[in-house]
């Protein structure tokens, strides 16, 4: 008698428990995504207040946009320039800090994690003054070393590197903590037995630490790719995309179209392109890397 109802409930109850997050996901993630796809098919801007259906007209005009290649190039340079550096720095420091170095360990950990705790906007403002070519500390110390510092934010070539350096400094602490957590999960017995076999520091690193950190590394890479493709705050605060669009990245470009030029159609089309691009990239990445990762400890 009750079996049917019970079975029904067994199926339904989990959905009920999930409903709060599902509702938020639908309202604030899935619905906006679907709606962007819809909006991207219309010409709709300040100059065309009444939406006109144009099929792929917006996509076409984005591809024709003269600065679009620059924006893509900047985004890629940013990603390629920051992810490996941040990961390398985070990994090395995590390994070092994981060594038994006595009571100093906690001080080191906190001091390396602190850039992560600074709000992004504050970090950006700090960097604006640090990288000021005339009165900034960066060029002051470069000068002490006998080097002539570049014009940083005042130049087309060095503005993006300045933002990248700031991002690396800002983000490595977070990745370091992730790596550190991974390191702590590695079974100590493995190290002990390898030491008995006469393995040195680098051999342990090569044959135990790195392989067993595989899952963490995959996670860090994915988070790294997503955050670096989404960079906005530092650009907005430090350069507003300038000089001459040399620091304009994809999310900032979308922001400009949506909230400054108020071209809803193009902004939506850009968002859709961005979403598809990022999604394919992540799927490809995961498929390629996952195969090489050991999940057993």
């Amino acid at each position: 008698m009750a079996t049917k109802r019970q079975r029904f409930l067994r199926i339904l109850i989990p959905y009920f428990y999930l409903s709060p997050s599902i509702i938020f996901l639908i309202l604030f993630t899935y619905w906006p995504v679907i709606n962007s796809v819809y909006l991207s098919l219309f010409r709709h801007s300040v100059l065309n207040p009444i939406p006109i259906f144009t099929w792929l007209g917006n996509y076409e005009s984005i591809l024709k946009e003269e600065i679009f290649p620059t924006v893509l190039k900047n985004t890629l340079i940013y990603a390629i320039g920051t992810i490996p550096f941040t990961m390398f720095l985070a990994f090395s420091l995590a390994v070092l800090i994981n060594e038994k170095i006595g009571w100093l360990r906690n001080i080191y950990r906190v001091s390396m994690f602190y850039p992560t705790m600074i709000p992004m906007a504050a970090a950006g403002m700090l960097a604006v003054w640090l990288f000021n070519p005339g009165i900034g500390l960066v060029n002051y110390y470069l000068g002490k070393l006998g080097l002539k510092g570049p014009q940083w934010l005042y130049s087309m070539e060095w503005a993006l590197p300045a933002i990248m350096i700031t991002a690396i400094w800002k983000n490595f602490g977070y990745f370091m903590i992730l790596f550190l957590a991974g390191l702590q999960n590695i079974n100590k017995e493995l190290y002990e037995s390898s030491e008995l076999e006469g393995a040195g520091f680098f051999q342990k690193l090569r044959f135990i630490t790195i392989p067993l950190l595989g899952p963490t590394t995959v996670f860090v890479i994915i988070v790294g790719v997503i955050t670096s493709f989404q960079v906005f705050d530092l650009v907005h605060i430090m350069t507003q995309g300038g000089p001459a669009d040399q620091t304009n990245v994809i999310v900032y470009f979308i922001y400009q179209y949506a909230f400054r030029f108020w071209d809803i159609g193009k902004a939506s089309a850009l968002t859709v392109l961005f979403l598809i691009g990022l999604l394919t990239f992540i799927i490809m990445l995961v498929r390629n890397i996952e195969r090489k990762v050991h999940y057993e400890v």
Binding site: V46, L47, S155, M156, G242, A244, Q256, R260, F261
Partner: peptide, 21 residues
Amino acid sequence: PVFQKVREILKTALDEATAGK
């Protein structure tokens, strides 16, 4: 209308020119 976009266009032109590009 959409002056912000006009501004960006103009600023890009000025920035590239002053850098000698």
